[in-house]
Nucleic acid binder design. Structure first.
Length: 519
RNA sequence: GCCAGAGUAGCUCAGCGGUAGAGCAGAGGACUCAUAAGCCUUUGGUCGGGGGUUCGAUUCCCUCCUCUGGCACCA
């Protein structure tokens, strides 16, 4: 079966409601997914949830509920977010699903069979009250532990470990010979620096069931569950492997379906905080299991609000639902993508959001579409004139630059490139003054040419911008009276509007929301 | 502490050997198709401090200061 562009977000831990950070990662991943589809690739877009672990077990217990019931509740909120964000998901994986357990256990069983694990002991200070190990950092200045931990005892715990060192040089070689493996490049340098600095420590991959019940049992030792790495990271393989993708399922002995889509290996979109797990642990886990490692890891930055870290406790948060309800999903998506590239941190300010909304969406794109359509409506009764080419080369240039940027994951750059056409078309109105020509019947032919170039530019903008603002792109098509959805880059070629087509009702795409200027 | 990176107009940033640029914000103007939007013009900077190399440095080197990121959990 044909190869797909398989792209994933990190799976979210279900210890809280979704917030700006969750939304951001999903939006940029969706924009990449949509842009690749538009450019003609077959895409598979996966996101999901990480539902095991002590925090979930404790949170559920605190509410007097079964962990699975607790997870189902949170999962509903994340699925709602996915819907609100207009994500084009192909699947949604949860680590408590049986398909996931099957894949995790298959990988663990294979590695165990081949002697990749060792049993070791961990010694430390343990708080039975908080069910956690404490470190020297947890000590108060006087050497005691804070009262919240209750009685703290030294404890020796036996666990399974996965030695990583045998793969360290292999991984260094791979990253050096594949410059695109980690994006952006400065993140790649960080990973290499880390790898070259000192030997990798063995990874502890289990927890005794007595201490942590809410997890996937080790297939070779029922007294233990697997701990975070082999559970959470494996989600990316779960879907391809359980569908029968030979590349993912074959090496770990799961059934292969020749008709299954060829997904693996994936492109992972993650936050910079979990880069090490994805760029170091995860490739080594896969390599040891005989599965090809990911194609690429894209590490994005974090958002702040008003220069401060997002924090539930201080109330310094941005609720995606609130913004979407007030401004629309496309304005939200647009701001996240336009404000920063994949890599750097961003700073959300309500005034910055409003400024971009008004200057770029309302006054720029929205007004261009509106003025173009209204002129066509009043001067030509809404009938598209014969094709002309005034703005054809500007549109072609923009389309080329936008496509190039999308392919390079330069989403901000794609918007900047598209807006060059917005600006060019707005200037074109001033240069040619169709509203003056309309008063002179002898200029009718020239007016036709100008009007065609304007509405055709609007149509092409809908195609170029569809990956970022799909709802608006659809509205532009509808207002132009064009059938279908602007979801294919191929239709950005000049001349798509046909003479005689009747346009629909011009309505503002992004109504201004600030008070009329006074002062 | 160690390792990177950054400090340039009010804000966000580009430039990286020949005495500074963009977008936004601010100011002025001509127009009127349009969401009082759009268009044109324009005010802003001893390019973090100090030293050095050079005919000449924002651009190279040294040093100091400040900030950010990574080295340890967190989208």
């Amino acid at each position: 079966m044909s190869e797909r562009f398989y792209i994933t977000t990190a799976i979210d831990y279900v210890n809280g409601r979704p917030h700006l950070g969750h939304a951001y990662e999903k939006v940029i991943t969706d924009v990449i997914a949509r842009s690749r589809r538009s450019l003609g690739e077959q895409v598979f877009f996966l996101t999901g949830l990480d539902e095991h672990g002590q925090k979930v077990q404790q949170a559920a217990a605190a509410e007097g509920r079964e962990p699975q019931v607790y997870c189902d509740d949170i999962a509903r909120a994340f699925r709602e977010l996915a819907t609100s964000l207009n994500l084009t998901l192909d699947d949604f994986v949860r680590t408590t699903e049986s398909r996931h357990r099957t894949v995790v256990q298959a990988i663990l069983a294979k590695l165990h069979r081949e002697g990749r694990f060792r049993v070791g002991t961990y010694e430390g200070w343990y708080s039975p009250k908080e069910e956690t190990f404490l470190t020297e950092k947890d000590r108060l200045p006087d050497g005691s532990f804070p009262a919240v931990y209750g009685q703290v005892n030294p404890l020796v715990e036996s666990n399974y470990f996965f030695p990583l060192q045998p793969y360290q040089q292999w991984l260094i070689d791979h990253i050096e010979s594949h410059p695109d493996f980690v994006y952006p490049d400065y993140r790649r340098n960080e990973v290499l620096g880390f790898l070259k600095k000192e030997p990798l420590e063995d990874l502890c991959i289990s927890r005794p069931k007595s201490r942590l019940a809410w997890g996937i049992p080790l297939p070779f030792d029922p007294d233990y569950v697997t701990y975070v790495w082999f559970d959470a990271l494996t989600n990316y393989v779960t879907v391809p492997a359980s569908m029968g993708d030979a590349t993912a399922a074959g090496p770990i002995g799961l059934p292969v379906d020749p008709g299954a889509p060829s997904l693996w290996p994936a492109i992972h979109v993650i936050g910079k905080d979990i880069l090490k797990f994805h760029a170091v642990y995860w490739p080594i886990m896969l390599h040891a299991a005989g599965i090809p490692i990911p194609r690429q890891i894209l590490a994005h930055g974090w958002w702040q609000k008003d220069g401060q870290k997002l924090s539930k406790s201080t109330g310094n948060v941005v609720d995606p639902h609130v913004v979407i309800n007030e401004w629309g999903v496309d304005a939200f998506r647009y701001y996240l993508v336009r404000e920063l590239d994949i890599g750097p941190d961003g700073n959300w300010t309500d005034s910055g959001f409003s400024a971009r909304y008004h200057a770029e969406l309302a006054n720029g794109l929205g007004n261009l579409v509106n003025r173009s359509l209204k002129m066509l409506k009043s001067y030509r009764a809404g009938r598209i004139p014969a094709p002309s080419t005034d703005l054809a080369s500007a549109a072609a240039g923009a389309a080329e630059a936008v496509a190039k940027a999308y392919r390079a994951y330069e989403l901000q750059g794609a918007l900047v490139a598209a807006w060059e056409l917005v600006d060019r078309a707005n200037k074109f109105v001033e240069e040619t003054a169709p509203f003056k020509l309309a008063k002179d019947p002898s200029q009718a032919a020239r007016l036709d040419e100008i009007l065609y170039s304007l509405v055709e530019s609007c149509r092409i903008l809908a195609v170029l911008l569809w990956p970022v603002i799909p709802e608006t792109a659809g509205k532009i098509y509808a207002q132009l009276g064009s059938p279908g959805v602007p979801d294919s880059f191929a239709s950005s070629a000049w001349g798509g509007l046909q003479e005689g087509q009747m346009v629909g009702e011009p309505l503002p795409l992004f109504p201004r929301k600030d008070a009329p200027v006074k002062k």
